[in-house]
Amino acid sequence: MLEHIALGQYLPGSSVLHRLDPRSKLVGLLIFMLFLFISRHPLFLVVAIGIFIWTFSVSKVPLIYFFKSMRLIGIIIFITLLLQLFMNNDGEVLFQFFSVTVYSGGLTEGLLIGGRLFILVGMASLLTLTTTPVDLTDGLETLFSPLKKWRFPVHEMAFMISIALRFFPTLIEETARITKAQMARGASFSHGSPWKRVKTIIPIFVPLIVQSLKRAEELAVAMEARGYVGGEGRTKYRQLYWKGLDTLVISIITAYAVLGVLTRLL
């Protein structure tokens, strides 16, 4: 029943976007986001929208999944839009409704900010929809690896994320199992005062913690038995492959960034 719950929202596929190296996707996304707000020149905005639409169409992500992943952020964008509409009083009056006056500046600002926010989150969503959490972790580990020079525990951080990814489904299952066992013993989680409800968590929380500690201990022993002593001297089974396509993506994004700077300056 719970076996299909997984962390992240990855949708399996074999699109161009799926096949890109996670490093180019991450760096590309970062540049795209950083420069998105740099210029309001129509040409630049058209290019940005173009990149977004192109990314979406090559990702082959069904529209439904895309919008599902945007649900929460959609609300925030909508609120931003409303705020701009009602608070901004630049430009001409578009219409008046009781005490609320909407100015043209509000509309354009609202659309500009909301639209860019939408694109920004949309791009990030497309990244997580087409990249497995494991690949993401790998990409991040490689990108951050220069930080090792300053003793930043890059490997350890990445390893921690990867173990969390591995055990997330197990933990969910365990929670469901313990909850059911306690429900079978008559525990009820749905009625009573708030304090009572907090108290009902204890029969789930305590066994869950105990089991997790036991798991952690057994896992540590198993890892030790398998010769794990930290990142030093370790080789990696997962290899990332930088392809021509990745270079192309980075070039396009760089061109976009340059365009952003130019349109801003001119």
Binding site: Q182, A184, G186, P203
Partner: peptide, 24 residues
């Protein structure tokens, strides 16, 4: 309703696999 199901638990006792995991 969940509330009605609740009463079934008086009649039906259930021992899950590894029941010792439910002690708290």
């Amino acid at each position: 309703k969940m509330k009605q199901l609740y009463h079934l638990r008086k009649e039906i006792g259930m021992v899950f696999q590894f029941p010792e995991h439910q002690l708290f």
